[in-house]
Design a protein around this nucleic acid. Structure first.
Lengths: 206, 206
DNA sequence: ACCTGAACACCGTTCAAGT
DNA sequence: ACCTGAACACCGTTCAAGT
């Protein structure tokens, strides 16, 4: 595909596509060059070395994160809605998000979401250091949950799975508990439960 | 250092040391061979290829995770103590833990901790699916928090840091909030606050 | 200003050959 | 049973040379 003159934008575009589909490990300078129909070394002229290329992709991702529109009737409901938006946005770009995270730009990426959280926390009557704690607790919880979830999906075959390890004997006198632990996790449900519980407890302190 | 006959144990030992100090990326078959004073290819005879070597290291780490001894007077206190133990164990082996996690063995690694959590949750009066939810919510929260924390430490220079972004103007009418958000996160404190809040709220439902 | 190929120093892995 | 070096196919990066 040796086409129109190579441009920084084109390089980033193709690189982003490669990462999105196959992860950052699949982004080699040589494959990228082949994809673009140029010599490997041309890439260096436009975007610098591999590290700088990845940095540029990350920067792009951070810019692309949309604004957050809270919805719901109470502050708690609106915080939960913000959390769900954060999770959705994270899950849509798993590879790129991991790279953003590795570069320590997660906070900057979540600045719009954080502003929304601040507003809701204040609306619930919290202020000062207490309000800051609540905002950060929710933010850590959401990002952490998505990280755990992502890794679980990457290798869904827990060996041996949680299941086998939780024979009824493991929770004597409570077969329902044993059965529940033997079932695979429903992440969506657990996420909602966790965020809702934490949020309501944090706001109740106000 | 061409010494005594090469053994699988020696290979794993040296490999683990390399990973512990410099991370998995620094573990190349050639460097490992140099460290051991053997030919690169000897490693393949003893532990197989690089992937299998990493798998073996992970297996070792999982086995090494100690048992958990809860402490405290109430179930909530004891759950928080379990959470702190989990966090400490995770933080002591950051690289290896990340590898365990990538291979989806986190659940198995935390089986002892999970048993402890189950016991405490039941002691607090929860049972059935509700108890399972509580256990998993705490487990996700702890692992997630440590993952977030770890990535933050790896790249402590948030650019621009949260600080600059939270000029007093950002939280109009609440300079204390703005100041609190401008300060760097105290992970230890935030961890305790988050776990304690979530735990107490989860147990209160029982 | 932009693009190129050759060359370098690194990888993981295979394999035939040694003892 | 254990260890070896040579060889292969892949990396990222530099650099002098082209237009």
């Amino acid at each position: 595909m040796a086409r129109s003159p190579l441009t920084r934008e084109a390089v980033l575009e193709t690189a982003a596509a490669l990462v999105r589909q196959h992860g950052p490990a699949a982004l080699t300078m040589r494959k990228l060059a082949a994809e673009l129909g140029t010599a490997v070394t041309s890439i260096y002229w436009h975007v610098g070395n591999r590290e700088q290329l990845l940095d540029a992709l990350v920067e792009r991702t951070v810019q692309d994160m949309g604004a957050i529109r809270p919805s719901g009737r109470t502050p708690a409901e609106r915080i939960v809605s913000v959390a769900r938006s954060m999770r959705r946005e994270l899950r849509e770009r798993p590879h790129l998000i991991a790279m953003v995270h590795e570069r320590g730009l997660t906070d900057r990426m979540f600045l719009p979401a954080q502003r929304a959280l601040v507003a809701e926390v204040r609306a619930a009557g919290l202020s000062g250091a207490r309000a800051a704690d609540a905002v950060r607790a929710v933010q850590f919880q959401v990002v952490g949950f998505v990280l755990v979830e992502r890794n679980r999906e990457r290798s869904p075959v827990q060996s041996p799975g949680e299941g086998e390890l939780w024979e009824p004997a493991a929770a004597p006198g409570d077969p329902a508990l044993a059965r529940a632990l033997a079932r695979p996790v429903d992440p969506e449900r657990l996420f909602l439960l966790s965020v809702r519980t934490l949020t309501e407890a944090l706001l109740a302190a106000g």
